[in-house]
Design a protein around this nucleic acid. Sequence first.
DNA 1: TATCGCTATGCAAAATACGCACAACGCTCT
DNA 2: AGAGCGTTGTGCGTATTTTGCATAGCGATA
Lengths: 121, 121
Amino acid sequence: MKQMRIRSKVWLEVDGQPFLGDGRYRLLTAVERTGSISAAARELGMSYRKVWALLQTMEETSPFPILKRRIGGKGGGASQLTGEILELMRGFQQVRDQVNAEADRCFDLYFPWRKTDADIP
Amino acid sequence: MKQMRIRSKVWLEVDGQPFLGDGRYRLLTAVERTGSISAAARELGMSYRKVWALLQTMEETSPFPILKRRIGGKGGGASQLTGEILELMRGFQQVRDQVNAEADRCFDLYFPWRKTDADIP
DNA sequence: TATCGCTATGCAAAATACGCACAACGCTCT
DNA sequence: AGAGCGTTGTGCGTATTTTGCATAGCGATA
């Protein structure tokens, strides 16, 4: 039984470069909760190398700082998010949820048939 | 001057596999207008190999036929879209436009500031 | 000043995307 | 009937991107 469904994706760009999308949102959330980039990587099952590159790219395109990093010292180091990015993340979450809801609504509106291939003419 | 803006993307999936998104929509439109896969590829600046693979994958995941192909014969061959996919494309276009509009609306709603980095606190 | 776990990075390997080059096909025209 | 044309279809080597291993650097604390 073929099941057809709609998907949607929302992200913010800065100067045409991807800035904040769903993946980075989850990553930042994990960093904030754990207080560490490497702990966040472990938690999400990603390599530290990859996570670090993501955050680095993000920081380079961002108009404001994202992370307060501490290298060395107690516990070897730590990182936490800046107030600016936390505020932006709140707005992003709102927009994302609302757009996803609209996509589902439109799908039901324009494709009330075609939930499966059973009802294909 | 850093310019921040929102982007959104909508696509249909069949059994969890990507089926129809913006790129394939444009491709199918070109195939229909030109009546030929290879002409569509040239028009979009893509290799025939890539376009063929896209359509092949699409046809494999689709619950219904997409293309009416003719190999050899007048003009060497030709292809045109089935009525089913044309109908689906119309619905997709509606949903896509409406969701994109909603994304823009939400962005203005939740980020009335932050059009540029000039007005960052 | 030794330790610890974190941040930071060079580099090779793995996976993926890409497209060139060629085969198969069947109308059409001679 | 046979050659030619411009399609569709495909094998396979090459380029590009992604990935993560391995290791260096750091500094507060004890």
